[in-house]
Design a protein around this nucleic acid. Structure first.
Lengths: 225, 225
DNA sequence: GATTGAAAGAATGTCTGACAATCCTGTTGA
DNA sequence: TCAACAGGATTGTCAGACATTCTTTCAATC
């Protein structure tokens, strides 16, 4: 028998499905930031019981994707700009490190996958499909983080990016940001392909900086509405 | 009325109490790594119902303090050395940054608090009270992280350190480690007091490196038993 | 003797229903 | 106008139940 044959499909529980569904809903902006989530409503909408829903909500609260205040229940956090900044700063710390490590560790196979992901983003960046932009960009990062050699770095980065997903999709929809982003990502990808760690780190730092600036920009725009 | 008088004590729910109790129990090594947690037993021991317990377990699972496998239930993760290394590497990244930021941002008041915490650790390091060593050391870091100006950095660092708490308390009990640790922490504290960012970062990096080496040492010792 | 198979027991996943405590809101009264 | 108060809405918590799945034991077979 092949040693790494992992046919064992983990059974999906209602709780897990619910966490995934809610997480996706939060990413998609289904819930207004600051709005409260009513357990009874969600139960009906999701077709599950209250205990299962509550377990899922506790998971999301621990991930900081929702807030839960005793006797008030869960709500979507309305992030302040200070919090968003703090998240972007830590994201920079982690992402620059991941890109640097990745440039030294990625295999040729995975490098090709990275270039394919970049190509996919290039296509999406020229389209009007906002969702495709976000998902293809996510794929690109995902490959980098998966090849930095440190699964903890990957895990924490994913958690952080999740918390600012709304800002990212908003800023990615702004005029010109996708094209700028594309140029920055090309720079990262090329530096990695050249195995140039310093250049890769610098490109990554630049990318996160610009992403933060774009997020601030979109946040200010939003505030004026 | 004083504007910032926050008398409103958040009501403590059974779920929160349970999370705290279990977290503390895990830190203290009450549960053997790898051992399974039986819901019905915990319910009786904690005097709570199964739904409340399960909510608490979901929180802990999201924090990665326990594993939950569908249809097998919760268990204490048995970390491999690779995972511990990965955690220490990310901890270094975050902690060095926090120390560097702290050296530029900490107030004189908080600096005194930091020096007091160091003195408390010095006392504990000479004693035989292993618990006191760990808690006073935690206080020291806690002040640094609270004064780095980035609450996200603080939050993630706390989560990471929690996951390796057992290794830290084990290595801190090893002959000589507490004294070495003390010397390293003095170096950090003095660099911060001198507002010397580079020296502070270097001292911090050195400290985490040594802590990781000590953890590996204690892990190897443990494995030989 | 080792391996397979079945059956019993244990533990988890999930639901329903219930009730007290708390929060929010709109109305009433001063 | 403002404060107190009732009412409804929502959450926190529990008890109990049952199907599903895992684990272990024991017997049967090769």
């Amino acid at each position: 028998m092949p040693p790494d044959l992992n046919l064992k499909v983990l059974p999906r529980t209602v709780q897990q499905e619910t966490v995934d569904k809610l997480r996706l809903a939060i990413f998609s902006g289904v819930f207004e930031p600051g709005s409260r989530l009513i357990e009874s409503q969600l139960c009906v909408q999701l077709g599950i019981s209250r205990p299962s829903l509550r377990e899922a909500l506790r998971s999301l609260a621990a991930e900081r994707l929702i807030d839960i205040v005793p006797n008030r229940g869960p709500s979507i956090p309305a992030l302040t700009w200070e919090e968003v900044t703090a998240i972007y700063e830590v994201r920079e710390l982690l992402e620059v490190e991941a890109v640097g490590l990745c440039s030294q560790r990625i295999s040729d196979d995975q490098l090709r996958a990275l270039q394919n992901a970049l190509a996919a983003f290039e296509t999406a960046a020229s389209s009007n499909d906002a969702l495709a932009r976000v998902t293809t960009a996510a794929d690109f990062y995902s490959i980098i983080l998966a090849n930095c050699g440190n699964p903890i770095l990957e895990e924490i980065h994913r958690g952080l990016v999740a918390r600012i997903s709304l800002f990212r999709s908003r800023s990615m929809s702004m005029e010109g940001r996708a094209q700028n982003s594309l140029a920055e990502m090309k720079e990262i990808c090329e530096s990695i392909a050249a195995r140039d760690e310093n250049a890769a780190r610098e490109a990554s730092r630049n990318h996160v900086h610009n992403a933060m600036a774009a997020a601030k920009n979109s946040m200010d725009t939003e505030a004026r509405l």
